[in-house]
Write a protein that binds this DNA or RNA. Structure first.
Lengths: 176, 176
DNA sequence: CGCAGGTCGGTGACATGTCAACCACGGCGC
DNA sequence: GCGCCGTGGTTGACATGTCACCGACCTGCG
């Protein structure tokens, strides 16, 4: 808590803070609009799907990849494991999976060893959807963000993420 | 639309994209949590309030300032003007003002020349609230973001905002 | 004047998230 | 075997936003 006078933001700092906030508002809106138009998915849908296919390929941390699937893929993850990985609350994921299940994109499946848990499994339609969506999405992300930045700006943005997120990753989501 | 093969993101690009997305998720959550705990406000509340006091002082574009008010301030703005300035949809603002009105932070007031429109007016309690909240909020923003960044990172973040937002500012919000 | 079309806002239905229980099960100590 | 607690997940009530649409009101023009 600021016991004394607060140090207000100077012009550069304000500009940076504003940049972050405006991007959160406008850039996200734009990319999500593209995604909805091109593929009928919300960003949340896309993330879930891509984290399910990602599980099958090599380690893919984010949502902007979806290559062809190697044979014998698993396409399934425990709810809690997926929630932790995405840093979503279990509640959020559960609600969202329910909705995606009704649209036929994923389905729940029991776990053998543990009667409490369940898997989320990608349906064929889910796979089809994400594979179709991915190229458009990457294109959208490039068009609105990545391709507008210089290599230096890209590098620095990555650095900023490391510096800022480091201390936060631990604390996680409020966790139900 | 990607007619040919999509250009997937390379490692640096992916890192930058991930940084943006994780910050949107975790950093925002953290700062909002602080704000709610310290001042009982949501980020949206804070923005509205600060844009109302801002109108009274010199031109303040963002939400991280709230100095003492000069005498004879107006503390009022047209709904549509405020919505445009914040780049919120009118619907969103209208709903939100209704809720804030019920908490006594703002109130609506008729416009003389135009029977359609209304002003949003800061109540004394609203002013009190934002002035109390501001120092904590700046502190929180510094602690989680600004003070973790080097001057160069701050400068580049600002640049990124300009480059990315430039093309978007025009398009505005889906606008009801 | 009189009205066509834009502007200002408000509303209701619906989507998404959060928070706080809650339930059922698994594991462990005794 | 039993009692307890931690885990995995679900649920319902509620907050916030979006979208589509309404309605009142201005304004320019014939």
């Amino acid at each position: 808590m600021p016991t004394t006078k607060p140090r207000w933001l100077d012009d550069d700092e304000m500009r940076a803070w504003l940049a972050y906030r405006r991007m959160r508002l406008l850039l996200s809106a734009e990319i999500n609009r593209d995604l909805a138009r091109d593929s009928g998915l919300s960003e949340a849908d896309y993330d879930v799907l891509s984290n399910l296919t990602a599980a099958t390929t090599t380690t893919r941390t984010t949502a902007t990849t979806a290559g062809t699937t190697p044979t014998g893929a698993a396409d399934r993850r425990r709810l809690s494991e997926l929630a932790a990985h995405m840093q979503w609350s279990k509640s959020r994921l559960s609600h969202h999976i329910t909705r995606m299940e009704q649209r036929g994109l994923v389905r729940r499946e029991e776990v053998d060893g543990d009667a409490r848990g369940s898997f989320v499994v990608l349906t064929p339609q889910g796979r089809e959807t994400i594979e179709r969506a991915a190229p458009h999405h990457v294109h959208s992300v490039r068009r609105h963000l990545i391709d507008r930045l210089s290599p230096e700006q890209i590098r620095v943005l990555g650095e900023i993420g490391d510096v800022v997120l480091g201390p936060l990753e631990g604390e996680g989501i409020p966790e139900d």
